[in-house]
Design a binder for these strands. Sequence first.
DNA 1: TATAATTCATTAGCATTGCTAATTAAATAG
DNA 2: CTATTTAATTAGCAATGCTAATGAATTATA
Lengths: 153, 153
Amino acid sequence: MKHRVAKHGPRDRSVEQVADRLHSAAIHLLRRVRKQDTATGEGPARLSALSVLVFGGPMNLGQLAAAEQVRPPTMTRIVTGLEKNGLAERVSDSADARRVQIRATPKGARLMQRGRKARIEYLARQLAQLTRDELSTLGEAVEVLQRLLQRWT
Amino acid sequence: MKHRVAKHGPRDRSVEQVADRLHSAAIHLLRRVRKQDTATGEGPARLSALSVLVFGGPMNLGQLAAAEQVRPPTMTRIVTGLEKNGLAERVSDSADARRVQIRATPKGARLMQRGRKARIEYLARQLAQLTRDELSTLGEAVEVLQRLLQRWT
DNA sequence: TATAATTCATTAGCATTGCTAATTAAATAG
DNA sequence: CTATTTAATTAGCAATGCTAATGAATTATA
C-alpha cells in the first residue's frame, strides 16, 4: 500500500495539472481557429457534420447525430441547413423507409476541403514558430491524445 | 537555398499534419468535457466569462468582451444572465459613469471552483489511463502550446 | 395474422449565444 | 457650448442545443 500511496499522490497532482492546462489550451486554440472558419459562411455545427460526411462517407441521420454527439432533432436541423445550401443531401434508404441516408454533395466536399485547407494552413503558420523539438513533442502528444480519445468512455 | 528547400518540404508537411490532428483532437476533447459542465446548469459562454472574472478579477464589460472574444452586445446578455442567477454583479464605475464593472459574486466563485474541479477531475480520470511517459509528453506539449498561444497573432 | 411495442426521423417550442444596426448616456475635443 | 467619440444597451436576426410530442415504418408477440 505504502509505495502505492507514495506513487499516487504526486502523480495525481501532475495529472490534474496537465488536465487543467490541456483544457484551457484547447479552448483558446479552437477559439482562434474558429474565426478562420467563418470565411466559409457556414457555422461550426454544419462544418463539423459535413466533415464527418466527407471524410467518413454517407450515413443515417441517427449515426451522424451520434458521431457529432448531438440529439437527432438537432441533427435534423443541421442537415436541413446543409441541404438548403447544397452541401449535403438526403437519400431515402431502400431497405428501411424510416431511415434517411445523408451524404455530402460534390460542392460540400469541395467546401470542406477548402475550409480544412485554410484552417490547417492558418494553424500551421502559427506552429511554424516552434522549434523542431517543440513540434516533435507536440506531434507525439497529439498521437497520444488521438489514441486516448478513441478509447474514451 | 538548396538545403533550405530540402529541409522545408518535409518540415511543412509535418507541421500541417500536426496542425490537422491537433485541431481534431481539441474539438473532440472539448466536446466530451463540455458535457460535464452542463451539471452546473449554466451554458458554456457564461461559464467561460465567469471563469475570467473569478480568476482574472473584476473588469469592465468591454474588457470582458475582448477577453472572451465576443462583441459587447453578446457580453451584455451573458452578464445579464449571470446576474440573474446571482453569479456576477454590475458595479457602477465611480470615475466614468459610462463604464460598468462586472465582478463575480461569492456564489459565482464557488460555482466556478466546483465546476472547474469536476471538469478537471473528469479529464484527469481519462488521462490516468496514460503511461508515465505519455503523460509526460502531453505535459510538455501543453506547455509548448501555452507559450505559443501567448504570442499568437 | 393482427396488434402492440419499438425505432427513426421530424415538428414544435424553448433557451442560449453569436452577430449587426441603432440608441442612449456620458466624456472629451474643438 | 456644441460636436464627436466612447461604452453599454436594446432590438432583431440566425444558428444550435435541448425535451416532448407526432408520424411513419419495422419488429415482436399474442
